[in-house]
Simulated assay, not measured.
Amino acid sequence: MTGLGIVIATRDRADRLARTLRRLTALPERPGILVVDNASRDHTRALIARDFPQVGVLRLAENRGALARTEGVRALSTPYIAFSDDDSWWEPGALDVAAKLLDAHPRLGLLSARTLVGPAAEEDPLNDLLARSPLGPAADLPGVQVLGFLACASVVRRTAYLDAGGFHPVLFFGGEETVLAYDLAARGWGVTHCPDVVARHHPDPASPRPGRPAAQRRNDVLTAWLRRPVPRALALTRDLAAQARHDPVARQALRETLARLPAALRARRPLPPHLERAARTLDGACP
Rank of each mutant, 00 (worst) to 15 (best):
A113R: 02
D103G: 03
P125Y: 10
N127Q: 09
V117L: 10
K100R: 15
A104L: 01
D96G: 12
S112H: 07
D128K: 08
G109Y: 00
A104F: 09
E123F: 12
S112C: 08
N127C: 08
D124F: 07
K100Q: 15
L126S: 14
P125W: 11
N127R: 06
H105E: 08
E122Y: 06
V117T: 13
L129F: 03
P125N: 06
A94C: 09
A120E: 15
A113I: 00
D128C: 12
L101D: 02
G109S: 05
N127K: 05
P106C: 10
E122T: 06
G109L: 01
L95V: 05
D124L: 08
P106I: 10
A120Q: 15
A98N: 02
L102H: 01
E122H: 11
E123Y: 15
D128S: 15
P125E: 05
P106M: 08
L129G: 10
R114V: 04
D124G: 04
L126C: 13
D96N: 10
R107M: 04
H105A: 07
D96R: 07
L102C: 08
A120D: 15
P106Q: 10
A98V: 01
P106E: 15
A99D: 02
P119I: 01
S112Q: 09
A113F: 06
G118Q: 13
L108Y: 09
L111N: 03
D128H: 13
E122L: 12
A113M: 09
D103E: 12
R107C: 04
L116D: 07
L111R: 07
P106R: 08
L116Q: 03
